[in-house]
């Protein structure tokens, strides 16, 4: 998440002080990624160091205001135009967990999948209810419609992201089931002298294990 560019985007609308930036950032994103005011000031001082913002005096209440510089504006433009970097996919705990569950002794990978699917769909239900509320707020013409709309976009991103996860889980499960059925239907391969010793528990008949066994033989 780019707090740096988020703050620049808010400052482009005019000078602001630290806690004001924090609350505007959160109302735009529905507090999905809460900021503490310390993060805001740390980021502001880095932006100032890099010449992207400059202190812009004080408001009537004595808050130190920050203003975006021309360098900051062009950095912001470039950020909007530049696609988000996908060359280094962020580490994903679920991918790692399933990768580790494949053939892990004593782990029922379908149970792992179902437990995650439960949590993922539950999260989607929660997001969807919040989304319905946001739509009602927008259609009701509330004063802060722009914030509601921004929040709706964030919520829908979360919904699509969790949907992709749910679909991937469904797909993974049906692939596992299909491979298991195929492994069960295939005649036992002729005993090869180099056949790997059975290392897993006797009851483990997961397809993926037999596939990896075949791969080793092949």
């Amino acid at each position: 998440m780019s707090i740096r560019h988020g703050l620049l985007a808010l400052l482009e609308r005019g000078p602001r002080y630290g806690s004001q930036l924090r609350s505007e950032f959160e109302s735009r994103t529905g507090s999905t990624w809460p900021l503490n005011v310390g993060q805001v000031y740390t980021t502001l001082s880095r932006l100032e160091r890099d010449g992207l913002v400059a202190p812009g005096g004080e408001d009537a209440a004595g808050h130190t205001l920050y203003a975006i510089t021309d360098t900051g504006r062009s950095e912001l433009r470039e950020w909007y135009e530049r696609p988000v970097d996908r060359t280094n996919p962020p580490r994903d705990e679920l991918s790692i967990k399933l990768a580790m569950a494949v053939g892990a002794p004593g782990v029922d990978i379908r149970a792992v999948i179902q437990s995650q699917r439960h949590a993922t769909i539950q999260a989607m239900q929660d997001y969807t209810r919040l989304k319905a509320q946001a739509i009602t707020a927008i259609e009701g013409g509330r004063a802060d419609e722009r914030d509601d709309l921004a929040w709706l976009l964030v919520l829908e991103q979360l919904i699509f992201q969790t949907e992709a996860e749910a679909r991937w889980l469904d797909h993974s499960e049906s692939r596992l089931v299909r491979l298991a059925a195929r492994a069960a239907a295939e005649p036992a391969p002729p005993a090869a002298p180099a056949a790997p010793p059975a290392t897993g528990p006797a009851a483990d008949t997961t397809a993926v294990r037999s596939r990896s066994a075949r791969t080793r033989r092949g």
């Binding site: 769909i121 239900q125 929660d126 209810r129 319905a132 699509f160 949907e163 679909r167």
Partner: peptide, 27 residues
């Protein structure tokens, strides 16, 4: 899943049995 998410509860069937269900939404 995106449409199921509009429901209060989501029931998961597998091989003719309910294997799991989510609780009502707690937004």
């Amino acid at each position: 899943p995106r449409f199921a998410a509009w429901a209060d509860r989501v029931v998961f069937l597998r091989d003719g049995s309910v294997v799991d269900e989510t609780l009502r939404s707690r937004a």
